[in-house]
Design a protein around this nucleic acid. Structure first.
Length: 438
RNA sequence: GGCCCUAUCGUCUAUCGGUUAGGACACAAGCUUCUCAAGCUUGGAAGCCGGGUUCGAUUCCCGGUAGGGUCACCA
């Protein structure tokens, strides 16, 4: 039988990372089994639902790569009240439900209560094993505000059945809802889906993750410049593990190895540091061209002549890359560099005269390097023996500052190759005249 | 509070009765290095407590404790 899972968010807030992980597990399991994940909006609560939230969820799902082109249409419960009305009537006629006085303000309205058979409901949770409830405590719970106004539990059961859902994979917070849903489903004569309740994502203090703990919406991570695959990779590792020591996965790789049996039972704290590390790993696996393309789409900084391989190595996210660029780290690529002359000697542990001598020698060595082979390895080959002989810091520090204008920068060979022979020589000349003033 | 779920390094986790309790993030030190990163090596760091069962329990059972979830005319 074809596996069908579902992702049924309620559009009452922005796409939450906990929601995203639930969607991911549903996606991974379905894809692994060759089935499919269906999506619907549980928007029976018209007072709280917003179109804006629906769009945010959809956008986030697309970004994460969990919403394929061949995705079936997204159902909306608000458009299916007619369908639910039929089932509510059916339940009432069969004696499984009845209309009753509303407890609140409106005396004309009758709520629909489910007639609780007061039994023990046991289901075999695919993550936790057998779980049972004595349903008596539920009393005759309300399944619809009126015949025309269904509530969550009724709508879920009907939709899961009509969608052909075989596996309900959802957050642990739904575990006690399962008994109500099984009761309704039995009354309707439906077969049971399999249930798997996954642990929750927790804040650092092990409380429920909320806005006060920082970024909790998926699109915030997108705005911070995370890679969707890295984000998905991290989410998958919260509460699940492959059983091997592999940690870096693409979505496709996750699909291959995912299984419900390896879902952990207890809640997991969201650790942004590890996410950052994973994102860096994914960044480094991108080709320079891929990285440059994505960075360009992300940032408003000028990336036209940036040394992508350097940034990729250094920044963990596109957000960090942007900061790096804006901090002036790569300003040496521009025509002019400005710096305090003293900086030329700061890390050189030598005096102006010596530094000057070394720079002159380096200049002489570089003049002999042809433009055609003015690449970092070649430049290093030419300068390094001399630097080693004279004391590297006394030669390389002034040279690096001459070329970069900064205390911290990539090495001078790389910079020289990036700015070219002509600019390199010009900057050395400029440094020489600075040194003369000291 | 009732009901339900859970409990291994600071964090994410491996272990399906016998292990020097493994890996990763973070942290520290070292190596590399002109600087900053990256990289490499090394290190510190864990079975909530108490009973059982067993030749032997982190692992199985019970109790306690702690944390979480849930008790809507929300989902």
């Amino acid at each position: 039988m074809k596996v069908i899972t579902r992702f049924p968010p309620s559009p009452t807030g922005y796409f939450h990372i906990g929601s995203a992980r639930t969607a991911l597990f549903n996606y991974l399991f379905a894809a692994h089994e060759g089935g499919e994940m269906r999506m619907r909006f549980e928007d029976t609560d018209t007072a709280r639902g917003k179109k804006e939230y629906e769009d945010d969820i959809l956008e986030g799902m697309r970004w994460l790569g969990l919403l394929g082109k061949k995705q079936a249409a997204v159902w909306k419960q608000s458009e299916r009240t007619g369908v639910y009305r039929g089932y509510i009537k059916q339940l009432i006629e069969a004696g499984h439900a009845y209309e009753a006085e509303a407890a609140t303000d409106n005396p004309d309205k009758k709520v629909v209560r489910f007639k609780n058979p007061n039994t023990t409901v046991t289901f075999n949770d695919l993550v936790r094993g057998p779980v049972s409830f004595d349903t008596g405590e539920l009393k005759d719970f309300i399944i619809a505000k009126s015949v025309d106004d269904p509530l969550y539990h009724l709508a879920v059961v009907v939709d899961d059945h009509e969608m052909g859902v075989t596996h309900v994979i959802r957050g642990e917070d739904h575990i006690s809802n399962t008994q109500r849903q099984i009761l309704i489903l039995v009354a309707l004569g439906y077969g049971r889906p399999a249930y798997a309740h996954i642990p929750l994502i927790l804040a650092p203090d092990r409380s429920k993750l909320s806005k006060r703990h920082g970024a909790v919406s998926v699109n915030e991570y997108r705005r911070q410049g995370f890679l969707p695959h890295a984000f998905v990779n991290y989410l998958a590792l919260l509460g699940w593990n492959p059983g091997t020591e592999q940690e870096v996965f693409t979505l496709e790789e996750l699909v291959k190895v995912f299984s419900l049996e390896r879902i952990h039972k207890s809640g997991a704290i969201f650790d942004k540091e590890k996410l950052l590390w994973l994102n860096h790993q994914h960044s480094k696996r991108l080709t320079d061209a891929e990285y440059a393309g994505l960075l360009k789409d992300f940032t408003d900084a000028d990336v036209s002549l940036l040394p992508v391989s350097l940034i990729k190595e250094r920044a963990r996210t596109f957000g960090e890359a942007t900061e790096l660029i804006k901090s002036g780290e790569y300003d040496f690529l521009a025509e002019k560099v400005g710096y305090e002359p003293h900086l030329l000697l700061k890390g050189a542990k030598t005096d102006a005269a010596t530094a000057k001598k070394h720079l002159k020698e380096v200049e002489t060595l570089l003049i002999d390097v042809s433009e055609k082979v003015f690449v970092s390895e070649e430049i290093k080959n030419v300068i390094y023996p001399y630097a080693t002989e004279q004391g590297r810091s006394t030669v390389l520090w002034p040279l690096r500052v001459a070329l970069s204008g900064r205390e911290k920068s990539p090495d001078p060979f790389i910079i020289a190759s990036l700015i070219g022979k002509e600019v390199t020589l010009r900057r050395i000349e400029s440094a020489l005249s600075h040194l003369s003033t000291l």
